[in-house]
Every structure is written in C-alpha cells, then in structure tokens.
C-alpha cells in the first residue's frame, strides 16, 4: 500500500464514523433523486398508460420502446418547444443578470448598518416574502397590478403614465423578474450576510488605518472575501437556468402572455396533467431540460474555476 493510501486508510479509521452523519442525506438523495431517475426510460417509450398494468412501473416497463421518437416530436418544426425553450432561457437569464447581484449588494448594505436592532429588523422584513407561496404572491400581484382596479395602475393612471399588465406579452418576462426579486432577494442575501460577517474584522481595521474608505473596503476586502460564496451560489443558480420558475409562472400566466411566458415547466405540466398524461413526451422534455442543466452546471463550474479561481469541484 502506498503512503497516500495508508494515510487515507488511517483517516478513515479515525473519522469514518463521522460519515454516518451523512447517511440520512445519502439515503434521501438515493430514494428521492436517484431512484426516480429510472423513470427517464419513459422518454424512449411509446405513449404510456400508467393504469394499464397493476403498477405504474409495470406499465412503464411493458410499453414498447420508441427510440428517439419523442425527441423528434418535441423538436418537430410545428412544435412550440423551441419557442418555449427560448422563453425559458430568456426569463432565466434576465433573472440571473438582474436579480442575482441584488442580494450581494443588499448583504453588504445590511452589514454596514451600524444599529444592530435596525439591521435585524431589516433582515426580518426582507426575508418575509420568501415564506409566502407563489399562489399567494401571484394573487397579491394580480390584484395590485389589475389593469382597472389595481392600486398600481390607479396610481399610474393618475400620474398620466402607462399600464403595468401581467397579461401583456411584452411586459410579462420583466414582471416575472420583478416579482422574483420582491420575493427572494431577502432570503438570498442570508448566505452573503454570513459570508460578509465571516471576513476577519482585522482586515477592515488595517484598511481603515491605511486610509481606505468604505468603497475601497468593499472592493478590496468585502467582495474578494465573499467571492467563494458568490461563485458557489452562481454555479448552483446556473444549474437552475432551465427552471425559470414553474410555480411562479404557472400561477401568473395568462393566454395573451403565453407567447413570451410559457416555459418548459408549464409546458410539461400542461401536457402531462391537464391534457391527459403524455408521459413519454413530457419525460423527453424533462430529460432534455436536465441534460442542458447538467451541461450548464459543469460549464459554470469551469467558468468560475478559470475566472474566480473558485469552484465546487
């Protein structure tokens, strides 16, 4: 056995029992993430009637294979899938570009608040929307932005300005970004606040002694200090690029906004549940979604490794 092998063996003997702590997470991941993946074979089957055999698994297994027919159907010229893929990416990229940086700024601002009670109060207030379900948030915003009776539009009309309308295809993606920001920036800031607080305070003191102002402290200490956290969260966010926010969009989408608002998640739901269970086609769409997501995560990790010298693996 090599020296490295011996060292690892020794480490395992000494700390191996700690691995037991990961067991619940491993079991959960296996049961809820890995076992369901076997259902991906549905993407290569003909349309499936899940009630045909005694169990859904039997029905899946017994349905004849169809090769890549479901993918061909998905990408057929008369299919809406490419437009929907475009919508998904557009909304997701908008969210990353516009919403991702805000919690970083917010975290820096909150940690700069000198009064501890005020800082705590601000944190609590901005977290709160995160705990509301999208169904409630959608209902609140629909009422708030109702073209005729909504408070926002009543105010805008009084000021002689235009109308904000969730049913307007041009406005819909931007309104999704806005409502996401309202709901989630407070919660997203938590990780950054912890990261900022974890920076050694002596660095700030040294910088102050050297004459660095607040802005310079932020640029030369705070931002580099939280770069690792930013990188990790960015890579994780990239992994969700293909999920532009199913619950949010499902709750807010109207027919006239479909041309810009329909995303892969709502499309799959419509096909799988509302329109009588096209499981094979929707699994194909889901698999495509996941493969692209995986490529993006790997790509994001590489990007962060090169640019920020930080990565998850």
């Amino acid at each position: 056995m090599t020296t490295k092998g011996k060292t690892q063996n020794g480490k395992f003997k000494r700390y191996g029992n700690l691995l037991l702590l990961t067991l619940p997470a491993v079991i959960l991941a296996f049961v809820f993430c890995y076992i369901p993946m076997s259902g991906l074979i549905m993407a290569f089957k003909e349309e499936i009637d899940l009630t045909e055999y005694d169990t859904a698994v039997q029905s899946i297994i017994m349905t004849p294979w169809s090769g890549f027919a479901q993918f061909e159907k998905l990408f057929a010229a008369d299919s809406d899938f490419m437009r929907i893929l475009g919508n998904t990416l557009y909304i997701s990229v908008l969210k990353i570009l516009l919403v991702f940086p805000i919690p970083i700024l917010l975290a820096i601002m909150i940690t700069e608040v000198q009064s501890r009670p005020a800082s705590k109060a601000i944190q609590s207030i901005i977290y709160l929307p995160h705990f509301l379900s999208w169904a409630i948030v959608a209902s609140v915003f629909e009422t708030f932005m109702h073209p005729n009776v909504g408070a926002l539009n009543t105010m805008l009309h009084a000021m002689g300005l235009g109308t904000v309308n969730l049913s307007d295809a041009k406005q819909f993606p931007w309104l999704m970004v806005l409502t996401t920001a309202w709901k989630d920036i407070g919660w997203s800031a938590v990780a950054y606040i912890s990261a900022v607080l974890a920076i050694d305070q002596e660095q700030f003191e040294a910088a102050r002694i050297d004459g660095a102002g607040k802005v310079k402290q932020i640029f030369y200490i705070t931002l580099p200090g939280i770069a690792g956290t930013v990188a990790v969260l960015f890579i994780m966010r990239i992994g969700y690029l293909m999920d532009a926010g199913f619950e949010q969009i499902y709750a807010m989408l109207t027919p006239t906004a479909e041309s810009t608002g329909e995303i892969i998640g709502t499309y799959i739901y419509k096909l799988a549940i509302k329109n009588g269970g096209s499981y094979a086609l929707t699994t194909a769409a889901g698999l495509f979604n996941s493969v692209v997501g995986l490529i993006l995560v790997v790509g994001g990790n590489l990007f962060c490794k090169k640019v920020f010298k930080r990565s998850i693996w």
Binding site: T256, K274, N275, G276
Partner: peptide, 23 residues
Amino acid sequence: SSHAAGMEDYFNAEITKMIYGSD
C-alpha cells in the same frame, strides 16, 4: 376523450389571444 381537454384548452387560449391580445 383523451384529447378533448387539450383541444378545449387550446381553443380557449387562442380565442382569448385573438380578442384581447396583440399577437
């Protein structure tokens, strides 16, 4: 029967787009 709901949903969405939308 397998397609009825999808067909109805499609029509309802499209007629709404046509009357109220700008597409």
